[in-house]
Design a protein around this nucleic acid. Structure first.
Length: 195
DNA sequence: TGAATGATCACG
DNA sequence: GTGATCATTCAT
């Protein structure tokens, strides 16, 4: 079980996103370690990508996307939900990968509590859901993935298959084939590509 | 199928 | 300051 090095993230988001499938997101929540395997992720590019928050250049909210790789970008949306990204590319170049779904592995009882007792497959099968299950809020924005609150591990397990589709939830014309998921997993989100 | 719900950003 | 928009979720 090895932790992903910062160099893993220092690549274009479109390369990092599929490589994150099968990896493990770990979260230390009040001393309890929660773990889940990434089964769905989307790449968001820099100022050339109209679907990315970085499209219009850096703002107070998005500045972490323009910083060095291996940090967490969390934003709040729809008045109710948090979404978690991993910052990619080198310092000064924007890029991030949105974690959209996990297969819960460890600390499942805590995730169930955080999610109001919902069934296993509904714990982490959406970007807002996995943040709620893992207790991720704007407090974690800017957190270092080389630190002790949130990090990523590689246990050597490779996905059997990787599928690609357009991204979910973007207005027409902004979607691109930058969503990657493991089609065999029951925990992939039910969001539909709007391509 | 649509309501909820508030932060964010571009504009003036 | 104002208004449009939103990388969603859940109940109807």
């Amino acid at each position: 079980m090895s932790r992903l090095p910062r160099s893993f993230y220092a690549r274009p988001a479109a390369e990092v996103a599929p490589d994150l499938l099968g990896k493990i997101l770990a979260r230390n929540l009040n001393g309890t370690v929660l773990r889940g395997r990434v089964v769905e992720a989307e790449a968001y590019l820099g100022e050339s990508d109209p679907g990315s928050h970085a499209f219009r250049g850096p703002t107070p909210r998005t500045q972490v996307m323009f910083g060095p790789p291996g940090y967490v970008y969390v934003y709040f949306t729809y008045g109710a939900h948090y979404c978690m990204n991993v910052v990619t590319n080198t310092d000064g170049t924007a890029g991030a990968v949105l974690l959209r779904a996990l297969e819960p592995l460890e600390g499942i009882d805590v995730m169930e509590q955080n999610r109001g007792g919902r069934p296993y497959v509904d714990l982490c099968n959406g970007p807002g859901k996995l943040c709620q299950a893992l207790g991720i809020t704007r407090e974690e924005n800017g957190a270092d993935l080389e630190g002790n609150a949130i990090w990523m591990e590689d246990d050597g397990v490779e996905p059997e298959e990787i599928a690609t589709s357009t991204r979910v939830g973007l207005s027409a014309g902004k979607s691109m084939p930058l969503r990657f998921y493991i089609p065999g997993s029951s925990c992939v989100s039910r969001g539909k590509p709007s391509g």
